[in-house]
């Protein structure tokens, strides 16, 4: 992809983010932080590419450590979000 296409995606995504996040109810701001944490670990994609590539052993090991760190976040972030969201209940009537 050329730089301008990437930049377009980025700028539009910023606007989407702006409107989507303002619509999040304040009661769910903590789960919001936990889930944004989990999804920002999509950086694992870069870590996977680094650790998959042959060529540089040091880059491979850095990549593997990054894969492990991002995995902590992905599993931990989604699991803790799920745990929190399960607690939000309406009045039983």
């Amino acid at each position: 992809m050329d730089f301008i296409s990437i930049l377009s995606i980025f700028v539009l995504a910023c606007f989407v983010g702006y409107y989507v996040v303002w619509s999040v109810t304040p009661a769910l701001h903590t789960p919001l932080m936990a889930v944004t944490n989990a999804i920002s670990s999509v950086i694992i994609v870069g870590a996977l590419i680094a650790s998959a590539a042959a060529g540089s052993p040091s880059a491979k090991w850095l990549g593997l450590i990054a894969v492990a760190l991002a995995s902590v976040n992905i599993f931990g972030g989604f699991a803790v979000t799920e745990r929190m969201l399960a607690m939000y209940k309406k009045k039983e009537r």
Binding site: M1, I9, F10, V16, Y18, L32, S40, V42, G46
Partner: peptide, 15 residues
């Protein structure tokens, strides 16, 4: 050049 990472980054950044 990965759209998933860029979209996510922008979402989390704005959030």
């Amino acid at each position: 050049g990965n759209s998933a990472m860029i979209i996510t980054g922008a979402l989390v950044g704005s959030s």
